Simulated scan of single mutants.
Amino acid sequence: MATNIKDVSRAAGVSIKTVSRVLNNERYVRPATRARVEEAMARLGFRPSAAARALAGGRSFQIALMCSNPGPYYLHGLIAGLRGRCAAEGVRLIVHAYDIEGTELSEDVRDMLRQLSPDGVILTPPIADLEPVLDALEAANTPYVRISPGISPGRSAAVAIDNEAAARAVTGMMIGLGHRRIGFVVGHRSYAVSNQRLAGYLDALRDAGLGVDLELVQQGWFDFASGQAAADRLLDLRDPPTAVFASSDDMAAGVLAAAHRRRLSVPGDLSIAGFDDTDLARSVWPPLTTVRQPIAVLAERAAELLFERAEPGLRLVPYELVRRETVAAPGAC
Rank of each mutant, 00 (worst) to 15 (best):
R43E: 14
F224D: 00
S20V: 04
V95F: 08
H188F: 03
S226N: 05
D108Q: 15
I122Q: 09
M66L: 15
I16C: 00
L305Y: 05
S265Y: 01
P267E: 08
D7L: 01
F275P: 10
L205D: 01
G81S: 09
L93K: 02
M1C: 03
C86H: 00
L210G: 00
C333L: 15
F245Q: 04
R263T: 05
L134A: 11
Q228V: 00
S106M: 12
A243P: 02
T171Y: 05
G176I: 08
A296G: 15
V159M: 11
I161V: 15
L288S: 07
N4P: 09
F46Q: 02
N25S: 14
F245H: 07
R315V: 15
L177Q: 14
D269R: 09
L306W: 05
A225F: 01
C67D: 07
E39K: 14
S247W: 01
L198C: 10
F307Y: 12
V145Y: 01
I100F: 07
H96A: 14
G176C: 11
E101P: 00
A192R: 06
P143V: 01
P149D: 12
R233E: 10
A166K: 13
V95S: 08
A303L: 03
A2C: 00
N141Q: 14
A167D: 04
A273C: 11
A11K: 13
L256S: 03
E104A: 13
E320P: 05
M251S: 06
R262C: 11
I272T: 09
H179A: 08
L130H: 13
